Amino acid sequence: MIRAASAALILLAGQAQALSCLAPDPLASFTNASASDMPYLVLTGDLATPSATGVTEPQPTTRTAQLTGFELTADGFTVPFDGEVLLDVTCAGPWCGALPASGPIVAFARIDGPVPVIEMSACGGWLFADPDQATLDHLTECMNGKTCSAQPLQ
């Protein structure tokens, strides 16, 4: 009887697990991209995602999207970017990322072939919708070696 109750508790505990994520933050993402062995582009602009609704995907998938905007340099978002990006939806167990709806974004695109890749993980962190000017300015400061912490922007 005790063994049966213990087994039932273990099964229930397994089913009650949930994904625990830190809140995504563009400044933390900049730090993570800078520390990566892979090169990244920091892009801002309008993302056109055909058939994307912002709904979580049921499984890993990769889709092509069009991004028209600018790449971050030491002078700010000054280099024009108009091209394809790959949206790579990944999963952590049963939890998957979502394809973003079209609109203004700031994104961290990994250079891993001829087309930049933006990972859309279950916890997010590489693409942010509707960036404000303060966020873009702070990312420029990060690019210039100034303090780049995930503290609230002032």
Rank of each mutant, 00 (worst) to 15 (best):
A35L: 10
G54K: 00
L41E: 14
D112W: 09
I111H: 04
K146V: 13
S36N: 04
C142T: 04
G97N: 09
P131K: 05
A48D: 14
A35T: 01
L127N: 06
G93L: 11
C142M: 07
F30R: 04
S20V: 11
Q17K: 09
G113N: 06
G113I: 10
G14W: 09
R63A: 05
T53W: 02
C91S: 09
S102N: 06
S121D: 05
A23M: 11
Q59P: 00
A52T: 03
W126M: 07
L27S: 07
S6T: 08
D82S: 10
Q151Y: 14
T73S: 15
F30M: 05
R110S: 09
A52C: 15
L86Q: 13
I10V: 15
P116W: 07
T140L: 04
A13P: 13
A18D: 13
S6A: 15
P80C: 02
L9C: 10
C96A: 10
A134N: 15
A23Y: 12
E57T: 02
D37T: 13
A7P: 02
Q133C: 12
P39V: 00
P26V: 07
A65T: 09
A107T: 01
K146C: 06
C123K: 12
G113Q: 03
T90K: 08
C91E: 11
S36W: 10
A18E: 11
I2V: 13
F77Q: 02
L47M: 04
S149R: 14
T62Y: 02
F128C: 00
D25R: 05
Q151A: 11
A122H: 08
I118K: 08
Q66L: 12
D25H: 08
F108C: 06
Q66W: 06
K146F: 15
G76N: 11
A52Q: 08
A129W: 04
I2T: 08
P152L: 11
I105T: 02
A28M: 15
C123P: 12
P26M: 10
A150W: 03
A98F: 00
A65Q: 12
I105M: 03
N144D: 07
V55N: 01
D75N: 14
T49G: 14
S34A: 15
A13E: 07
C21H: 14
V89Q: 06
T68H: 06
G45T: 01
S6P: 02
F108S: 05
S20K: 14
R3C: 04
A129I: 06
L47K: 03
T68L: 03
A7F: 10
T135R: 01
L99T: 00
A109C: 04
L11M: 14
A92W: 12
A35I: 00
S121F: 03
E57S: 15
M143H: 07
S36F: 04
V42A: 11
G113D: 00
C91G: 09
P50E: 01
V79T: 14
E84G: 09
D75L: 14
A109R: 01
T140P: 05
A109H: 08
I2Q: 10
A48N: 13
T56D: 11
G113K: 08
N144E: 07
L136P: 08
V55A: 12
L9N: 13
P26N: 08
Q15V: 11
F108G: 02
M38R: 12
A13N: 09
V89N: 04
G93W: 01
V106L: 12
Q59S: 12
L87T: 00
